[in-house]
Simulated scan of single mutants.
Amino acid sequence: MLSISEFSQMCHLSPQALRFYHAEGLLVPAETDERTGYRSYAFDQVEQAMLIALLRDTGMSVKLVRQALDEPDRAVALLDRHSDEVHRQRGAQDEAIRAARSVFEAQPEPRLRHVPAMTVVAMLVHGTPLGRDAQEWDRAEATVAAATAELVARVQEVGVRCLGRPRRALAFETQTPDRRVLDGEGAAWMVEVPVAATTAALAALPADLLVHAQAARDELAIFMPGRNTMAKYGTVILRLLHAHPLDDGRFVDIARLRQEIHDDGVLSSAPVEQQPE
Rank of each mutant, 00 (worst) to 15 (best):
D248N: 15
V211A: 02
T174G: 04
R168A: 14
C162K: 01
P245I: 06
L151E: 04
E157F: 06
D183A: 10
L238D: 15
P194T: 05
R168C: 14
P177Y: 05
A169D: 08
V211F: 04
F223V: 10
L182D: 09
A221H: 12
A221F: 10
V191S: 06
R168K: 14
A204W: 09
R168L: 15
R179I: 11
R165M: 06
L220R: 08
A216I: 07
F172R: 10
G159A: 00
E185S: 15
Q156E: 15
P177D: 00
Q156H: 11
G186H: 06
P206Q: 03
D247T: 15
W189D: 14
F251S: 13
F172G: 05
L220Y: 04
E185K: 15
V193Q: 09
R239A: 04
A215E: 00
V158R: 02
F172L: 11
A216Y: 08
A188K: 10
V160I: 09
G164E: 04
P206T: 02
T174N: 02
P166L: 05
E150L: 11
F172E: 08
R227P: 01
L210K: 10
L240V: 11
A204I: 09
A187L: 02
V155A: 03
L202Y: 03
A200H: 08
T199M: 11
V158W: 03
V155D: 03
A201G: 01
R217Y: 00
L170E: 11
V152Q: 01
F251C: 12
G234E: 08
L182T: 04
Y233T: 14
I222C: 13
A203P: 00
V195M: 14
V211K: 02
Y233L: 13
G159I: 03
E185L: 15
P206D: 03
H244M: 13
K232V: 06
D248Y: 12
A243C: 14
W189K: 13
M190F: 00
I237N: 06
G184T: 01
A243G: 13
L241A: 14
